[in-house]
């Protein structure tokens, strides 16, 4: 399994982040080994052929065995407010559709979002805070209630600076490489105190899963224990530039977290300026990005021999 991962850049990104978690003991060593063995067992059971499939098995395991997630040993201090960036297609499923109908807001994605779409949605949230569905479990009902968060301050500062396109800029700073052009983005901002201490953590490869631009810090104390996003660039030949701070969170009871919904806007450029249908260009960017890691061949051999 690990040899197969080692053959492709996306697999090497995951391996390099495993190496980082192992070397610097981001996760307690026995638990990490236990996870890797569970992953290998799932690999044998499902017999996936492709690297993306092997990596996506991480979700299946962490989904079944919650003990593997949120285990990074860093203890980051929280700011007053944190935000998550969410695309409209996911956000609308968490909103009270009856309220949206009353306000004349369409949920269907459209090639052309109407002129006042973003301000209308944000205003709807201001006027009717209960527009956010409680969800089955009382929290944002997306990806099993798990999502990335970042301090809210920098987004607000960026918004006030009035960049040419806030959506492109936020996407790039947060390393959201899967959001190409024409993606409608919103910011859900809420009190950090709403998150239970056990329900937030610095991300490791387990939370990142198949994230194509995830790079963990070596030293868990770096960036005061927070993870850092990878700033999307046109090229990574000269190394990566870090974006902003990030954590992974789950089960946030947003309906009682003083949540505010703010418009980010519509992305107008592809991530990294790469056509999503240009497989060669995508591969080239992944190779450049994996070149910023120092994955040891003996570590891959060790994984093959011991897991």
């Amino acid at each position: 399994m690990f040899s197969t991962l080692n053959k492709e850049p996306l697999g090497r990104i995951v391996l390099a982040n495993i190496q980082c978690a192992y070397d610097h003991e981001h996760i307690e060593r026995d638990l990490l080994i236990s996870f890797l063995k569970a992953w290998k067992a799932a690999y044998i059971s499902y017999a996936p052929i492709y690297v993306e499939e092997i990596i996506n098995l991480i979700h299946n395991i962490a989904d079944k065995e919650v003990k593997y997630r949120f285990q990074h040993k860093a203890k980051p201090q929280m700011p007053d407010k944190v935000s998550t960036i969410i695309r409209w297609e996911i956000l609308h499923k968490n909103l009270n559709i009856i309220e949206l109908n009353q306000m004349g807001i369409e949920v269907s994605n459209s090639a052309e979002y109407e002129e006042h779409f973003f301000t209308k949605v944000a205003a709807a949230f201001d006027e009717h805070p209960k527009i956010l569905n409680d969800g089955t479990y009382g929290y944002l009902d997306y990806n099993d209630g798990q999502f990335w968060i970042t301090p809210s301050d920098w987004i607000e500062k960026l918004r006030h600076a009035k960049p040419a396109n806030l959506a492109n800029q936020v996407r790039d700073i947060l390393g959201l490489v899967h959001f190409n052009s024409n993606v409608a983005l919103f910011e859900l901002c809420f009190l950090a105190t709403a998150i239970h201490p056990n329900n937030k953590a610095t991300p490791t490869f387990i939370e990142a899963e198949a994230h194509q631009r995830f790079k963990a810090h070596n030293n868990p104390a770096d960036n005061e224990g927070w993870g850092s996003t990878v700033y999307l660039q046109r090229s990574y030949k000269e190394g990566i530039r870090t974006g902003e701070s990030e954590l992974f969170a789950r089960q946030v009871p947003l309906y009682k977290a003083n949540g505010q919904l703010k418009a980010i806007g519509l992305t107008t450029e592809h991530a990294e300026w790469v056509d999503p249908n240009d497989e060669a260009a995508i591969l080239n960017m992944q190779n450049e990005f994996v070149g910023t890691f120092d994955l040891r061949s003996e570590f891959v051999t060790w994984l093959n021999d011991n897991i």
């Binding site: 996936p48 492709y50 993306e52 979700h59 996911i90 099993d144």
Partner: peptide, 23 residues
């Protein structure tokens, strides 16, 4: 409940929970 993606064979394991299923 998990594993949720398996019935979408043969591409189930290519689907991610970080993105909307409809998309």
């Amino acid at each position: 409940s998990p594993p949720k993606n398996i019935p979408f064979t043969p591409i189930g394991l290519l689907l991610t929970h970080h993105e909307d299923i409809g998309v």
